[in-house]
Design a protein around this nucleic acid. Structure first.
Lengths: 335, 335
DNA sequence: TATATTAATGCAATCGTTTGCATTAATATA
DNA sequence: TATATTAATGCAAACGATTGCATTAATATA
């Protein structure tokens, strides 16, 4: 059962390989009769063109590489799914690389992508070395999503503005003792932007108390860590509003409060980030910020394809949406 | 800035392309001197071998295809991540196909994988046509994970036994009015197995009441649907134990009960399936069943590689683990 | 010293497509 | 009818790597 090649099809159809190629590609001047003979032959033999040969000859692979910190994170997995969807629509394949937020893994990953001759790359999420991305962009078109690198077209969210609005809304709702609890930035620009929005809103106010905790350990298993953090330390400082950089952290806090007998939102308002599926059904449901992963992915993908086809692509900023639920009762309109 | 090829390296090192190839592949008899000259040249030019050319010549791509229903599902995304990890360890790349539980998408996906000349395929999760898998296995080695197809080596879980034990434990804990709420099977063997375990345990008992609801609509947005289902219908029939086929369904029920003023676990015990991250921190935390996605992935991947290398691979069954939490207070030991 | 063996390297074919150019046959134009 | 034009197809050369075989030089054996 040998692999059937274009020559086999050609032989059966009684034409040359070139003709088969042209028929299957379409758009060339081929007689009606030949066309159908070739198609029949290809059909009958179950001919499947060999991508490796095609890539080699055309010096285009119709594939792209996507680098993300961790494909099992809810947000990233949604991006992965969306990119697969959009890629399939135009006949592209996708190679995923997990950087694991580690420089070495990312460097290897990029090298693998280049070996495979991807036509372009998308870098989603931060944490990695911008220099690496910049370097990759000298071999191949590059877009970034949810992070920025100089001179690379990107699709990002308005993190800073959103958290500013959120913080102001909490202030308007009467909260005066704030805690910001989030992952340490580690080069994640979106995280530092969120925090910047927090200070934007509150640093000029003088009738409030503000505490900040940025924890490395929150990068991993956020739920259990935030749970522990809260139990160990936060109940002493008793904030009346906690802004977190992640729904899992928020959920951890809610869960911990429940164990401690602290009522949410009556005693403490808690907000998250990401609008994870479970957040809508948590008890209490989590007030959070929604980022449209599908839209991010669509714009990144289409932008990259444009670049690949030598069309221009501009950076875009997507608006996040504050989802008001039970864990923090705010009125957005007031801000 | 043209792409640098093996010939460029050869020229710079003053040897033939064959020699460069052999040096870089290793294991051939090459003089120490030549070796280092070649390596230096490759390094200096930033030579990256072209995978397409290599695949074409070797008729092996060192890549595999993975077909799963939906890469953004928590369990599947964990599998994806694990497979990427194990593949990278041995220099394989992975192409993911989302079947979306649709026959046509799956057929297309398999065709794309064959075009790309993957050396093998892993099918994870059910829903699709076994015939398609069987057919694929005639072109290329195939493993299945969390689903079975005749004559294809597989890695599965002991769903039936687990749910039998779970049901018995609930019975032992005094529950007498059972509801089984799950997705309709739709060819998902793991789902029908779970239900089979349920009937195994309870069909012979005569002092109990049993209701079954298998809903198509639960395949999509489980949380909101199970929430609605519960609100509309289940509170009338008032079971004292609900076994679900999914943590999201369980969470939906818990959330709905809370709104209705029904206390869990006091009035109704609820169990889930999958041990999603959020389940440990739900209120109340969800008693559920854990399936080791990483172990499944590891065995599937290693099994597939063995097949690719013409070594034998046997099917395996992994044990699930019942995680006892607050939403259903049972003692496992009693069963 | 002549011969056999081994080590190090090069030559050239091959993998399956695509595509510029040449060729042929058919048709239109003068 | 001779010539120009067009349509349909084939030829053959790439694309970049690998590898069986041939070649050469160096060393070992008799």
């Amino acid at each position: 059962m040998r692999k059937v090649t274009i020559k086999d099809v050609a032989r059966l159809a009684g034409v040359s390989a070139s003709t088969v190629s042209r028929v299957l590609a379409g758009g060339a001047a081929i007689s009606e009769d030949t066309c159908s003979r070739v198609r029949d032959a290809a059909e009958k033999l179950g001919y499947i063109p060999n991508t490796a040969a095609r890539s080699l000859r055309c010096e285009k692979s119709r594939s792209i590489g996507v680098v993300l910190p961790d494909i099992s994170g809810e947000f990233y997995s949604l991006c992965a799914s969306s990119i697969l969807k959009y890629a399939r629509m135009v006949g592209y394949t996708v190679l995923f690389i997990e950087s694991g937020r580690e420089l070495e893994a990312e460097r290897d990953g990029i090298r693998i992508l280049l070996q495979h001759g991807v036509d372009g790359m998308i870098f989603i999420g931060g944490g990695s070395d911008g220099a690496l991305i910049l370097e990759a962009s000298r071999s191949v078109p590059v877009m970034t999503g949810d992070r920025r690198v100089d001179n690379i077209p990107s699709v990002t969210f308005n993190n800073r503005e959103t958290v500013r609005r959120l913080s102001n809304a909490l202030y308007s709702a009467g909260h005066r003792s704030f805690l910001y609890l989030g992952e340490s930035f580690n080069g994640f620009e979106n995280l530092s932007e969120r925090y910047a929005g927090f200070t934007d809103a509150l640093s000029m106010k003088n009738d409030i108390r503000v505490t900040t905790m940025l924890e490395d350990s929150l990068h991993g298993d956020k739920l259990s860590v935030s749970f522990r953090l809260f139990c160990e330390r936060i109940k002493d400082m008793l904030p009346d509003a906690v802004i977190t950089s992640n729904d899992l952290i928020a959920q951890g806090i809610i869960s911990a409060s429940y164990k401690c007998g602290i009522r949410i939102p009556e005693q403490i308002a808690v907000t998250g980030f990401d609008d994870m599926t479970s957040s809508a059904y948590y008890t209490p449901s989590v007030t959070t910020v929604r980022q449209d992963a599908d839209e991010l992915s669509r714009l990144c993908f289409n932008g990259l394809i444009a670049l690949i086809e030598n069309k221009p692509t501009v950076s875009q900023i997507l608006k996040q949406k504050i989802i008001i639920r039970d864990s923090a009762e705010i009125k957005e309109g007031e801000v």
